[in-house]
Design a protein around this nucleic acid. Structure first.
Length: 558
RNA sequence: UGGGGUGUGGUGUAAUUGGCAACACAGCAGAUUCUGGUUCUGUUAUUCGGGGUUCAAGUCCUCGCACCCCAACCA
């Protein structure tokens, strides 16, 4: 699926090694996985890792990966998210097939719950949440048993059916597994299996008044689907004994699924918790879930990140059980790697400075051929109009050049990309000392960019003909959070918010070919970076990622 | 406080399962270049700590330490 040759340094990660062993030992005879998002938010880069693992693993071993919505909580879930999640999975490059829903298993789950009640392994508790929580005990402190723990199966069944029929108020009762209130693992101190909710469910409407909890629904859904490998993140490690307990006490046919945990993906300068991301949106810090600064799949897509780059990144970083935080620079490296190969080059002047060629024939327009992508000869060339009145980048001219500055300065000759060699003769400044116009002469023999006598210049600069320029804007993005680990110092990520994460540039000048950019196209603005054309607004470009910039490093040092 | 998990350069991931600690990103230096991009070359830097077993330990034993997770009717 991933098209780069980007496998990790060594061989299999621990999950693949496990699967390979199970297959060769005959512990399993197939590989079925599942990706189980809850439809209460948008997918982000962390999910991309899980998707790549779940779908990638299944594909590698000739199996299948189910997209299953873990829709057991009607309070927060919505079909809006279902559609967005399916769309995002497809965009990432995986075919989810017919989506499945935990809510489709509610009836089966209910029957299994009655089975556990009949076995004396589950009971209805009439206490409220606070009481149950208090009775659970603490770390190192055993819990105490509920006074309702020893109800008879008949009584429990009657009560449970009443719960199902909507005869009980929300919060008045729960169904609990009857395991061990003294267990050292808190998860096994009689966990709640069902709670009463009168909220309508996005798929089952108001047919249910009781809803299964994650622990009760997840493993059983896996079993129903024939999942062999249920991969989840590390925080569920403590739930695994409970996952297994339910499965062991049910009349299952076939092999039970197995849960394996791995470390979630964290990135520097990034938050991925649903709550934090929602906060950014609701506080208006970003424009929405698809703001290009967001680590959501929709945000990254709008930013111009190729799906293949995200896939390559995810498979390259591999999977382990070590809590870790990857540097966002690595992700950006994969983005550049793909875009360098694929993106067409265009010339754009983001902060325009006027350049006049004093010896250019009045009104004359030349048309020069410019390579579309030096990495891909098949991309061909394009014709770009050139005249005596041009826009260049403000950064490309200095009245007083600092050391190692190779660009235009009075008396120096540089190349205007694919056009002519020009020499700066003079410059105008305004009352504040800002340069307003730069004057040059040109070498008519250097058409195409090469001097007839073979002399070299230190710098090649991009340009746009003023008479032909298109005007538009660009959004320059920086990290949303300044700190590697947002909130590391104070505990609140918002303290590390980068208030200058977006710079809006208007009055940018684009070469004519940019007028043909389709919504969503990603191009390289030569010497500046990769930019994604906005899906809705023409001639608005979002900076995907800048080019590596040696001059920026040199000038920052001094 | 009890239980579980994890510790390898700045970051992340490997190490033929006891045999010369490697790969990538980042950094630094240089070469090439009509993008100060790309590409290429070189280079800096690593096994959490103490003790033990062994010819040999990142790997095995032991005692510590640090960090993460667990006491929702969230997932």
């Amino acid at each position: 699926m991933s098209d780069g040759d980007t496998s990790t340094a060594g061989g299999d990660d621990f999950v693949r090694e496990l699967v390979r062993n199970e297959l060769s030992n005959g512990v399993v005879d197939r590989v079925i996985t599942r990706f189980p998002p809850e439809p209460n938010g948008y997918l982000h880069i962390g999910h991309a890792k899980a998707i790549t693992l779940d779908f990638g693993l299944a594909a590698e071993f000739g199996g299948r990966c189910n997209l299953r919505f873990d829709d057991t909580n009607p309070d927060t879930e919505d079909t809006e998210f279902v559609d967005a999640i399916i769309d995002d999975v497809r965009w990432l490059g995986y075919e989810p097939g017919e989506p499945l829903y935990a809510s489709d298993y509610f009836e089966q789950l209910y029957r299994w719950a009655e089975h556990l009640i009949e076995q004396g392994l589950a009971y209805v508790d009439d206490q409220d949440a606070d009481t149950i929580s208090a009775q659970r005990g603490g770390y190192g402190k055993p819990g105490v048993e509920s006074p309702f723990r020893d109800r008879t199966p008949e009584e429990n069944l009657a009560l449970f059916r009443a719960m199902r029929n909507g005869e009980c108020a929300e919060g008045s009762r729960v169904l609990r597994a009857r395991i061990d209130m003294q267990h050292e693992n808190m998860q096994l101190r009689d966990p709640v299996m069902y709670r009463i909710r009168n909220e309508p469910h996005h798929r089952t409407g108001d047919t249910w008044h009781i809803y299964p909890t994650y622990d009760w629904a997840h493993g059983q859904s896996d079993a129903i689907e024939g999942v062999t490998h249920s991969l989840c993140t590390l925080e569920f490690d403590a739930h695994r004994p409970l996952y297994d307990w339910f499965l062991q006490h049910l009349p299952l046919t076939g092999d039970a699924p197995n849960q394996t945990e791995f470390a979630r993906l964290e990135l520097t300068h990034t938050v991925t918790s649903k709550r934090r991301l929602a906060g950014l949106v609701h506080d208006g810090i970003v424009d929405g879930w698809d703001d290009p600064r967001m680590p959501t799949l929709r945000g990254l897509r709008r930013r111009g990140y190729p799906a293949a780059a995200i896939r390559d990144f995810c498979s390259y970083i591999g999977v382990s059980r070590t809590n870790s935080r990857h540097q966002i620079e690595l992700l950006e490296w994969f983005v550049r790697d793909h875009l360098n190969r694929d993106a067409l080059r265009r010339m754009a002047v983001l902060r325009p400075l006027r350049l006049v060629i004093t010896d250019w024939p009045d009104g004359h327009v030349d048309t020069v051929d410019v390579v579309n992508n030096p990495e891909d000869p098949a991309a061909g060339t394009r014709a770009v109009p050139f005249g005596g009145d041009l826009w260049i980048e403000q950064d490309d001219f200095r009245l007083d050049p600092p050391p190692k500055y190779f660009r235009l300065t009075p008396g120096r000759e540089v190349r205007l990309r694919a056009a002519y060699l020009v020499t700066c003769t003079d410059a105008d400044t305004d009352a504040d000392g800002n340069v307003t116009t730069v004057y040059c002469t040109h070498d008519p023999g250097s058409r195409g960019g090469t001097a007839p006598d073979g002399r070299k210049v230190k710098s090649t600069m991009h340009w746009v003909s003023a008479a032909h320029a298109l005007e538009g804007s660009a959004m320059l993005y920086d990290r949303l959070f300044n700190a590697d680990v947002p909130g590391d110092a104070t505990g609140d990520p918002m303290d590390d918010l980068n208030i200058a994460s977006r710079e809006i540039l208007t009055g940018c000048r684009f070469e004519p070919a940019l007028g043909d950019a389709a919504p969503g196209d990603v191009v390289q603005f030569e010497r500046l970076g990769y930019f994604a054309h906005d899906p809705r607004t023409a001639l608005l470009f979002h900076r995907t990622v800048g080019l590596r910039d040696e001059w920026a490093r040199i000038s920052a040092r001094s």
